[in-house]
Amino acid sequence: MDDSDQNCPLSELALQIAKDELREDEKTRKFALEQMREWIRKNPRIIFCRTDNSFLFRFLRVKKFSIPIAQETLEKYLLLRHAFGHLMFHNLDIKNPVMEELLSLGYLFVAPKRDKNGRRIIIARPGVFDPYKFTNQDMCHIHAITYETLMEDEENQVFGYVHFADGVGFSFPHLTLFTPKEAVRIVKNGERIIPMRHKEVHGINAPAGLKYVIDFGMSLVSEKIRKRVKIYNNLDELHKHIDRSLLPKEYGGEMPMAEMIDLWRKELLKYRDVLLTNDKMSVRLDMYSEAAKEGSVSALKSGCGIGAKKEGVDYVTGSFRQLAVD
């Protein structure tokens, strides 16, 4: 897929934020897309990868148009799709009865309106996830469907995301869904490799008896993300930080949760075929180390665990200075 001739779909506000925060303009967009496509074409480790604007821009924007870092992150993403394909990335079908049930329960969905900064609000209610009925694969799949759908929208790529979680009902059995090793790999690789700009994280009703779990989770994310996490004691405190009109009626807003879920379901169905087609993306696994193929955090940190098999690939250097990622 290649839509390089299409007009930029960003609104005036998104264009301005892209310029101010991401160093993005018409010239950098055109140059960066050319470089990314040429690199993919010449990379012997990549068998197939999407090359349409929306897909490539998500990596360029999250790395503020530092082309070498965007290229490296894209390749790590493709390898991560292999490492956790069975658990998270493959067969992301919202029509799957289990996915539909989790969506209808309101386990994870996205509010229809954007906040004053243009951001979508991702709403999570982990307590409604029955750990005796559903599996860790079910949990990963609904998260992947949600995030991959959001990333298809270029406005979301620029504005970033706000997360809101309600901890009511979350308990010890939920912790048995993943081993500590799996949790570390998923959280750390997810933050570093999934191209999303997480701007704010808000939580309410955190289980007092599971404080050590929250502390462990916070230790897995970067200092940048930790500073953006806020936990509140009640809805009144939350409303000081999130416009209550954007939240479901059950959390002080205006629109009932069920109505929000129905609207989000329509968005998911719109991108269903795209998400399923993503399963075609693949890399030559024989050119990676065993640790990288298994999703090792350390192996995916630098060079994709390629070791001595780096020959044949040139990452663009010197095109843009490497900036701190926001």
Rank of each mutant, 00 (worst) to 15 (best):
A165T: 06
V62R: 06
P248T: 12
E182D: 11
A18R: 03
I214A: 13
Y132Q: 13
F57S: 08
G307V: 08
Y251A: 01
R185Q: 15
S54V: 00
P195F: 11
L103V: 12
F65K: 10
I94K: 03
R61I: 01
L74V: 09
E237S: 09
E152C: 10
C49F: 08
Q137F: 13
E148I: 05
R50I: 01
T51Y: 02
L87R: 13
P180M: 06
E75M: 07
L268W: 02
C49K: 13
R185S: 12
S171K: 11
E154S: 14
L247P: 06
C140G: 03
L276M: 09
A111V: 10
H163L: 02
R284M: 06
D93A: 09
G303K: 05
D153K: 15
K266Q: 09
K230A: 06
S319K: 10
V62M: 04
P173Q: 06
W39K: 00
R228Q: 04
D3A: 00
L269G: 12
I261Q: 01
A144K: 02
A299P: 02
L268M: 13
T135M: 10
I94L: 07
N96E: 14
L103R: 13
V313R: 08
K113S: 11
I46Q: 02
M1P: 15
K30M: 09
K301P: 00
Y315A: 04
F109D: 02
G217V: 05
Y132D: 12
W264D: 11
P44C: 08
T277A: 15
R244S: 14
I142S: 09
A324F: 06
K76G: 13
F320T: 07
E237V: 10
G118L: 05
T146R: 07
L269K: 08
N91C: 04
L60G: 08
G318D: 09
K27G: 00
M88E: 11
L235Q: 02
E182Y: 12
G118V: 04
R284N: 14
Q137A: 15
S289N: 03
L235R: 06
K116T: 07
F170W: 07
L105R: 15
S245I: 04
L175C: 12
L238Y: 05
L22G: 04
G305I: 03
E155P: 00
P173S: 07
E311W: 10
T28P: 13
P207L: 14
Q71M: 05
A165S: 05
A165W: 14
I242N: 00
P173T: 03
G252E: 00
A144G: 06
F48K: 13
Q6H: 08
F65W: 13
E267H: 10
E182S: 06
G127Q: 10
N233D: 15
G169D: 05
H90G: 00
Y232T: 01
T277R: 15
E148S: 12
N7W: 02
Y315P: 01
R125L: 00
E12M: 12
R125V: 02
T176C: 01
K301Y: 05
Q137I: 14
